[in-house]
């Protein structure tokens, strides 16, 4: 959340073989967002490491009215940063977990 004002955390992780995750996103620093958004509300969503892209999820969040179009890049970046961290952590785990 250091630069986008948004925080994304892992809500639920399947086992390593499962590429689907549950992530949770909320606004940590409202001043860093340009458009209207819902304060104090966390949005939990599924994310498939193999088929989903952060940009696509951000677009759906904007379409659903959670964020303004002007913040979609920040939402996508926050999701991408967290997903990259999760992928790195998984790469470190022994094969077969």
């Amino acid at each position: 959340a250091e630069d986008t004002g948004l925080r994304v955390e892992l809500a639920e992780e399947g086992d390593c073989s499962n590429s689907s995750l549950a992530l949770r996103l909320w606004v940590e620093d409202p001043k860093k967002l340009k458009g209207k958004h819902k304060d104090n509300e966390a949005i939990e969503f599924s994310f498939n490491l193999e088929t989903d892209t952060p940009e696509e999820v951000a677009y759906e969040m904007v379409k659903s009215g959670f964020f303004h179009e002007s913040d979609s890049k920040a939402v996508a970046k926050s999701i991408r940063d967290r997903v990259n961290l999760i992928k790195k952590a998984r790469d470190k785990k022994p094969a077969g977990c």
Binding site: D29, K38, N40, E41, A42, S64
Partner: peptide, 27 residues
Amino acid sequence: SSLTQVVHSAGRRFIVSPVPESRLRES
């Protein structure tokens, strides 16, 4: 619970719930 709202968009489900107090204090 009544505080949780489910929104569907393009086949994806978003579950909206209040941010836990503890997480708000962190920021």
